[in-house]
Computed example of a mutant assay.
Amino acid sequence: MAMTLRLSEDEDRALTLLAQTQGTSKQEAAKRAILAQASRQLFDAHVAELAAIHIPEVRAMRSRLRSVRRP
């Protein structure tokens, strides 16, 4: 799928540096960055869920937070 990515000068400079350090094109560096961030977020969510299941304090805190958010 084709996509146009509009970047500020600073963002383009950062992407250029990232590509150079990885020895890849800017397109490849952007794709890798997207996959890395998605992986981190999924892992963090998984760890948080495991903590809520296995650590009573986390489970209690989540329960208290849910009750505060309800109208």
Rank of each mutant, 00 (worst) to 15 (best):
A52P: 00
F43K: 12
S39V: 00
L5S: 03
T16D: 12
H46L: 08
P56E: 14
V47Q: 13
L35Y: 08
L50N: 04
L15Y: 04
A19R: 05
I34K: 06
R32I: 08
E9Y: 02
D12P: 00
E49H: 12
R6L: 10
A29M: 02
S39A: 10
G23I: 06
A52Q: 06
H46G: 08
A19V: 10
R40A: 07
P71K: 15
S8K: 03
M1A: 08
M61S: 04
S25Q: 06
S39T: 13
R59I: 02
A14S: 10
L65W: 12
A14M: 06
L17W: 10
R6D: 07
A48S: 15
M61L: 15
L7S: 02
I55D: 04
A48R: 15
D10A: 14
A52G: 15
A45Y: 01
K26C: 00
A29N: 01
S25P: 01
T4C: 06
A14P: 00
R32S: 09
I34H: 06
R64E: 15
D44T: 08
T4L: 11
R13L: 09
V68M: 15
A60Q: 14
E11K: 07
E57D: 12
P56Q: 14
R66V: 10
A2N: 14
L17N: 01
H54L: 12
A33E: 05
F43Q: 08
R40P: 00
H54K: 11
R64L: 15
Q41D: 13
G23A: 07
Q37T: 15
Q37G: 11
M61C: 07
V47L: 14
D10L: 06
P71I: 13
E49K: 10
D10G: 03
Q20H: 13
D12K: 12
T21Y: 04
R66I: 11
G23N: 04
R62G: 01
L50E: 07
P71Q: 14
E49Y: 12
K26H: 01
T16A: 09
L65T: 05
V58K: 00
A29D: 01
R13Q: 09
A38S: 10
L42F: 12
L35G: 01
D10I: 03
R62M: 11
A2C: 05
H46C: 05
L17F: 08
A45C: 03
A14V: 03
E9G: 08
T21S: 13
E11F: 03
G23V: 06
A29F: 00
G23T: 04
E9N: 11
T16S: 12
L50H: 06
R69K: 13
Q37L: 14
R32F: 04
A48G: 04
L18W: 07
L65G: 07
L18Y: 07
M61E: 10
Q22G: 06
R64A: 15
S8R: 04
R13V: 03
L17T: 14
T4M: 13
K26E: 00
S39C: 11
D12I: 01
D12T: 05
R64P: 01
T16W: 11
L15K: 04
L50R: 08
L17D: 05
A19F: 02
E11M: 09
E57V: 04
T4H: 14
I53N: 04
M3W: 05
L7H: 02
S39R: 13
